[in-house]
Design a binder for these strands. Structure first.
Length: 155
DNA sequence: GCCAACGTTGGC
DNA sequence: GCCAACGTTGGC
């Protein structure tokens, strides 16, 4: 089992939205580095859910991978914002995963706290100018995040 | 709303 | 294949 961080703008799709939906396809990622991480994900992997472009930004809870290697259907839809004219059903370019809700932290871990606790080398999300929306989280970092959130690690 | 960072596009 | 222009992300 691996750990990852996924970003979402809460006014677009928040952790509460995922809680309401239960499971949702993580579509719309159009960055190759992020896609390559999505391709590496396996069922059961843990996802730290990060709210970006909000005050304050930070990790608000946990989700999990419920299905791996899912073809993102929005790439084929000419009407869709995430349409990719170079993708075909025979040769899709964008794979993703389905994510399931796990839990919401009693108190979020703000970006300020993340910067106080982790170096940019340890955790890319605190790197200045970082725009990657999917990134791996090292196991020791994940354990320290659990401690910061007062989360017992079971879900 | 500003702007730094940085990925992508397209002309050459 | 280089690189300037452009668009987007996302913190502040």
């Amino acid at each position: 089992m691996k750990y990852w961080l996924i970003k979402s703008e809460p006014h677009d799709y928040s952790l509460a939205d995922l809680q309401a939906d239960g499971v949702e396809i993580w579509d719309g990622v159009r960055n190759y580095q992020a896609r390559n991480f999505l391709r590496e994900m396996a069922v059961g992997d843990r996802l730290f859910y990060y709210h970006s472009n909000t005050k304050p930004p930070g990790i608000v809870g946990l989700a999990k991978v419920t299905q791996a290697n899912v073809v993102d259907p929005t790439q084929f839809d000419a009407e869709h914002k995430y349409f990719d004219p170079k993708a075909t059903p025979e040769k899709p370019r964008w794979q993703t995963v389905k994510v399931g809700y796990t839990s919401t932290f009693a108190t979020m871990i703000t970006l300020t706290q993340l910067k106080e606790n982790f170096t940019p080398d340890e955790f890319a999300v605190v790197r200045r100018g970082n725009r990657l929306s999917v990134m791996p989280v090292a196991e020791d970092v994940a354990k320290r995040l659990y401690a910061l959130a007062d989360y017992d690690g079971t879900a």
